[in-house]
């Protein structure tokens, strides 16, 4: 079991409120990603769950039991750190076994579990090496091995992939997701990378300035962002925002449209503009279009588009995919 519930959790350092009233229900077995810009409090929130920081107020329930006064070691969680935090003086075997040793398990059982975890993570040939003799990806696996071997109620990941190069990151992303599904253990994962969030999560928590802006599945966040912040944060390239009156929609303060929902035409309808930069990726073409008082708009077209800087184009938004926002940033539902 690994049901984690946050009720009105607050954290302040002196007069600074890092976390303001967080309420959250993380279901057993789900993969939840905390995402947000740096300094939004996502890591702090994770450390509060871990018990590495004390809450200033509110309750954290794990399987229904309030754990705010329970030390990290007794919460039954395990954590993968951004720096991996491997014990440099211990072998891979020693690193993975450490938690079990601390729990006082009998030696044969430790041995068996370590072997099993190493096999799962393809670490068997490296069991007797020291962390400094491993590559970044292998260290990452050891850190994960150390987390899974204890069969915790939940895994906590603190930006675990940010020190890896791009190719390895994609591969590890898949492996972590696969492993989590296979084990069925709850996972809470912190990242600043919205692609990671979208690809890995069952549910995403978008944080901004210590506040939970929205909690929902990736598709929900993409299709129905609750406010300007979420709309701007989720999706790449970023959603275009234009002033409502300038776009002929005086009912909304701001109008949002994703680059992939802008149709490009050489003449006719929509918003006129001039291409200022065209990025040709082969599979897609990104157009950065100067559209007068609407500002700079980004359009994403599938396939190769033979447009270049200086060309005049017309952009027409898909009316079903328009997002309308109030002055205060919240979305106008209809």
């Amino acid at each position: 079991m690994g049901q984690i519930t946050l009720q009105r959790v607050r954290k302040s350092f002196g007069p600074v409120n890092i976390i303001k009233d967080a309420n959250l229900d993380i279901e057993n077995g789900s993969f939840v990603v905390f995402v947000g810009p740096s300094g939004c409090g996502k890591t702090t929130l994770l450390r509060l769950i871990a018990g590495l920081e004390d809450v200033s107020g509110g309750q954290i329930l794990i399987d229904g039991r309030n754990v705010v006064d329970v030390p990290p070691a007794k919460r039954g969680l395990s954590m993968v750190f951004q720096s991996y935090a491997l014990y440099p003086h211990m072998s891979v075997r020693g690193n993975i076994a450490f938690g079990l040793k601390m729990a006082g398990l009998p030696r044969p059982e430790i041995e068996r579990k370590v072997e099993a975890a190493a096999a799962t993570l393809n670490l068997t040939p490296y069991l007797d090496r020291k962390p400094r003799e491993l590559s970044g990806g292998q260290r990452q696996r050891v850190a994960i091995g150390r987390a899974i071997v204890r069969e915790p109620k939940a895994f906590l990941f603190d930006e675990p992939l940010s020190n890896l190069d791009a190719a390895l990151r994609v591969q590890m992303r898949l492996e972590v997701t696969k492993l989590q599904k296979q084990l069925g253990t709850t996972a809470v994962y912190v990242t600043h990378d919205q692609v990671e969030a979208m690809t890995m999560a069952d549910k995403i928590v978008v944080l901004n300035a210590g506040r939970i802006e929205q909690f929902g599945s990736p598709i929900e966040l993409y299709e129905r962002p609750a406010n300007l912040f979420v709309a701007g944060f989720i999706g790449s390239p970023k959603m275009n925002f234009v002033p409502g009156d300038a776009a002929g929609e005086p009912g909304a303060a701001t109008l949002g449209v994703r680059p992939e929902h802008l149709k490009i035409g050489k003449e006719g309808e929509g918003w006129p503009g001039t291409v200022s930069v065209a990025e040709h990726l082969g599979s897609d073409t990104f157009l950065y279009v100067e559209a007068g008082k609407l500002g700079m708009l980004t359009a994403r077209c599938i396939g190769e588009f033979s447009l270049k800087a200086g060309d005049h184009v017309w952009l027409s938004p898909d009316p079903a995919r328009l997002h309308r926002f109030e002055k205060d940033g919240s979305v106008i539902r209809r």
Binding site: P71, A73, S83, Y87, F98, M102
Partner: peptide, 22 residues
């Protein structure tokens, strides 16, 4: 790195063991 001590703490090490083993 503080991380490593925290990792030990997450691994269930008591303060004494944290000092001795890590």
């Amino acid at each position: 790195p503080k991380d490593i001590l925290e990792a030990a703490r997450m691994d269930g090490a008591t303060i004494g063991r944290e000092l001795i083993y890590v």
